[in-house]
Design a protein around this nucleic acid. Structure first.
Lengths: 250, 250
DNA sequence: TAGTGGTCTAGACCACACA
DNA sequence: GTGTGGTCTAGACCACTAC
């Protein structure tokens, strides 16, 4: 007998897939659907195991995968929580600019422009939108130790972020991804980044206080949500005379 | 009773640490010491569990960590193997340059210079050597689709790589990290990379066929072995007019 | 004291590779 | 068929948190 037939109200899963994978899928669906909300504790492992009709070992293996992807967070003695986007997570997972040979600090963020626009070809393709679709076009300037270091040019689907206002954007209490999560129920779980060296445009140079044509690092980032749909397209332009991009690989 | 007292010939592990961690540590020691060699199969999980005096679940959990770090590779039905450095691994783990928006291909590598030198300050500090220590200084040029894309300036400890010759370097049958592993028993398991945009030097520009002062991406990489000691210090200079650096984050 | 996640056990059975 | 890793079970006990 199969647990997916025993347990009521649970999607059938994939035939032939390991049980823990199907449990994982079922949990992901609840998270993506917003049944379990960021910051909330999820039911205990014992309860979930009983509910899904699997052993506790299998249930733990399912949760392990989600913890690795930082979608859930375990806290011994307290419970397992739906991960939230906060400054810590930004710093350790999505912000890779550090002083030369130094340690990470949290950037000062300043919104330079906020407007509606229609998507150019690249933006539309990266976000999976029709060319010319309505987007928000936002420009932020980030400083470290009071020195401007990075310009973010952000594009997000105006339909998906319907109702977003400049004051909401500028007055957010935490990080941008926290705003996406808290206000629009969209959780960024993964990003892809492509880096190049380019010559600074006059516009970017002025904002960074450098010479036009000076070498700058550009980071093209696509951010994906729990359903692996693109959420945000961002081009970051970085002055690397005193800071650099840090990555660890295995 | 404690398994570390029962099992003969095994280091005592860390008091208070979980059993599977100590098993992991013991396995790592055997690997680092070269008792288990790259490409070889390790004893079966049942045998190892018995040898260490732990359950098979605990033994599997220990191996899981090493598989995640790509130090071991599991193959169902065949066994668990000590990972080797080959072209596949290079491409998927340590070579991050791709055509703009395109897919990875294996680079053509050409050795431009091979000499002995004494370590400058940065090299010495990155490799943990005394300033002025003897190193090999090697320059490679990498091409993709017959276009020169990247210059590697590599520094390695001459003492640790004692006896390395230019013909050995140039005639290696596989990747550089494969040479380190096969010939010197040094396995690279992790790297740290720091990226900047800079103006191309005349030397680099000539090798890349670009204008002096053109923006180039520089990658400063430190490679670490199984004991987490630095092995190699490498500065890559990349022409990103047609190629870019790709990274995935979570 | 009660509830949570973390570790560990001692099996069973399945899927796969190879002779 | 035999041996390997992969999955799954049904517990036990420990470490930690909160009341």
């Amino acid at each position: 007998m199969n647990a997916w037939r025993r347990a009521a109200g649970v999607s059938p899963g994939v035939a032939g897939a390991p049980l823990y994978r199907n449990v994982q899928r079922a949990l992901m669906e609840r998270l993506a659907a917003g049944e379990l909300r960021p910051g909330q504790v999820i039911p205990s492992e014992r309860d979930l195991a009983q509910e899904f009709g699997v052993s506790i070992g299998t249930l733990r293996k399912a949760i392990d995968g989600l913890v690795e992807r930082r979608i859930l967070i375990r806290q011994q003695g307290k419970g397992t929580f739906v991960a939230t986007h906060d400054r810590e997570r930004l710093l350790f997972n999505f912000f890779h600019i550090v002083p030369h040979g130094g340690t990470k600090t949290y950037p000062l963020v300043e919104c330079v422009a906020f407007r509606r626009a229609s998507a150019d070809g690249e933006t539309a393709s990266r976000l999976g939108l029709a060319p010319g679709a309505a987007v928000f076009a936002i420009r932020n300037r980030l400083s470290l130790d009071s020195v401007p270091v990075l310009i973010d040019d952000i594009r997000i689907d105006a339909e998906r972020f319907n109702g977003l206002t400049a004051s909401q954007w500028k007055g957010r209490p935490s990080t941008i991804y926290n705003l996406y999560q808290e206000t629009f129920g969209i959780t960024v779980v993964r990003t892809e980044e492509r880096l190049r060296a380019e010559a600074a445009s006059a516009e970017h140079a002025a904002l960074l206080g450098i010479r036009t044509g000076a070498p700058v690092l550009t980071i093209r980032r696509t951010a994906f949500d729990m359903r692996d749909e693109p959420v945000e397209w961002r081009v970051s332009t970085v002055d690397t005379t005193a800071h650099e991009y840090f990555a660890e690989l295995l």
